[in-house]
Nucleic acid binder design. Structure first.
Lengths: 135, 135
DNA sequence: ATGACTGCAAAGACTTTGCATCTTT
DNA sequence: AAAGATGCAAAGTCTTTGCAGTCAT
């Protein structure tokens, strides 16, 4: 008693869209991608489905960048780099903090730690180029 | 030519307020704390000053939790624990990622990495108690 | 006096929701 | 047919901003 109904053409398209990009999209971005294909798609539907996928752990949110929530279909642990200039988000295939770290954190916080996020911030190569030349 | 004027009673009070708490406040929280003391304080002023302190590096933002931006007057590197249930944020005096990690991240992202954030999520002790008993 | 800071309220920006309608099973 | 998903637009939240008045030097 748990698989009521989980598919609809649009819902599937939204998940596909998420899984076929590495840009850590916003709801609006997903909407813009699919709008040409599903002209009657509604932004509300995108929000609703992303929220639902997040809820079920199918995707994750990597936080709010510049006022926009960014989602990621890659839910295995990995770090992110976020450009503070243009907002670009990239995956960093770095070693994950050892499980021991989670335990340490849990002990320190006297809490049950279930996840973590490691993100680096700075200027991406593109923004670097734009800002460095003293033209 | 840079120190126009940087003090006002309210601005100082906002910074003091930030420095005298460990709760990683929201703008609203700071506002509520100071309102009794400065009855004519405006929420806009709190937002404006927090934004300015963040800009100058006097405080930092630790991200948006449950829709509210959380600030931290502690700007030295440290990790955070965030309760996904009640939104509580705690400092974790954990070893910071070695500087080498920043370099690795920079190399991986082909970027200039200037900072990082490490945060753990889970249930705090309070929320744990509430949810575990099967009453 | 003068430039900076603030209060107030309106405006913005992103996200959520209610309800009637359309889909999927 | 029944349960669920969607479109649309209105409502909600949090945050930012314009402007006239106030404050600190």
């Amino acid at each position: 008693m748990e698989n009521k109904r989980k598919h609809s053409r649009k819902r599937d398209a939204i998940l596909d869209c998420m899984r076929n990009t590495t840009c850590h999209p916003t709801a609006e971005w997903v909407y813009q991608q699919l709008k040409p294909i599903y002209p009657d798609l509604s932004l509300g539907t995108v929000y609703r489905n992303l929220a639902m996928f997040k809820e079920t752990g199918t995707i994750q949110s990597i936080g709010v960048v510049g006022g926009l929530e960014r989602y990621d279909a890659q839910v295995k642990p990995h770090a992110h780099f976020i450009c503070t200039c243009c907002g670009k988000v990239e995956d960093l295939p770095m070693a994950a903090p050892a499980p021991a770290l989670l335990e340490d954190a849990g002990r320190l916080a006297e809490a049950t730690v279930t996840g973590y996020q490691l993100q680096f911030t700075g200027l991406c190569s593109g923004c670097n180029k734009k800002s460095e030349p003293k033209n």
